[in-house]
Design a protein around this nucleic acid. Structure first.
Length: 218
DNA sequence: CTCCAGGGGGCCA
DNA sequence: TGGCCCCATGGA
């Protein structure tokens, strides 16, 4: 299994994915923040629901670290309600803006190298490996390969299985050119592949193999 | 009706 | 560490 070859085939089949969609409202820092908010809200949630929550946050003037820090937990919950798990996610957003303030904001965090930034993010309550890596890749535009359940299924379709998140991540990072734009697009394409495969109607590893070969042929 | 999304924390052996 | 359970909405 050559990750670069699979990438090219996925790109040919599914085309540009346009991740990460952000509202063009408030400059680079605002966009970075919105990506972080989206990364937290999309945990085990459909992106269509996350979009509604993001619209609500803008309308409530809450798409801003200081506004979220000052907002009541009730107001925050009602804004993000459509994204689900709103009790947990309201706390997570509060924890994240507290973290941002404690670390001097995006400018200061941006000076960190990827390993330090990753450790720092993982220390925040509510941020696990995938959310941390999504923030590093899509908000900070630094090179890290995001792993999700679809990525594991993709590897599994080649009978490649690892125990830990980082083993999956390093499998790709060690076999691909260190290219942020490509890693950005690759993760989005894998999600597109996963959704397409599900639309085909699925389940077993065999079906997943057939589904991927179908992609490779085209 | 069931299933499950662009996960993560807590608990317990 | 590894396995479970919990969190919750909304589209298919």
């Amino acid at each position: 299994m050559n990750p670069l070859t699979v990438y090219k085939k996925l790109r040919k089949k599914f085309g540009p994915q346009h991740w990460w969609p952000v509202s063009q409202v408030s400059g680079v820092r605002g966009q970075m923040f919105e990506v972080c908010v989206g990364a937290i809200l999309t945990q085990a949630a459909a992106w269509t629901n996350v979009e509604k929550a993001i619209v609500n946050l803008h309308r409530a003037r809450l798409m801003d670290p200081e506004r979220i820090a000052k907002a009541s937990i009730a107001k925050l919950k009602s804004a993000i309600h459509p994204a689900g798990y709103f009790n947990q996610k309201a706390k997570k957003l509060k924890a994240f803006v507290r973290f941002l303030d404690a670390h001097g904001g995006f400018e200061k965090l941006n000076k960190m190298k990827v390993p330090e930034l990753r450790e720092t993010l993982l220390a925040v309550w509510g941020i696990g490996p995938e959310t941390a890596d999504s923030i590093i890749l899509y908000a900070f535009l630094k090179p890290i390969f995001v792993i999700d359940t679809y990525t594991k299924r993709l590897l599994a379709s080649f009978d490649i299985r690892f125990k830990t998140y980082d083993e999956h991540r390093l499998f790709f990072e060690n076999r691909l050119p260190r290219n942020v734009k490509m890693w950005n697009e690759y993760h989005a394409l894998i999600v597109a592949w996963g959704k397409n495969k599900k639309a085909d109607s699925i389940g077993s590893t065999q079906t997943e193999q057939l589904s991927l070969r179908r992609v490779q042929r085209q």
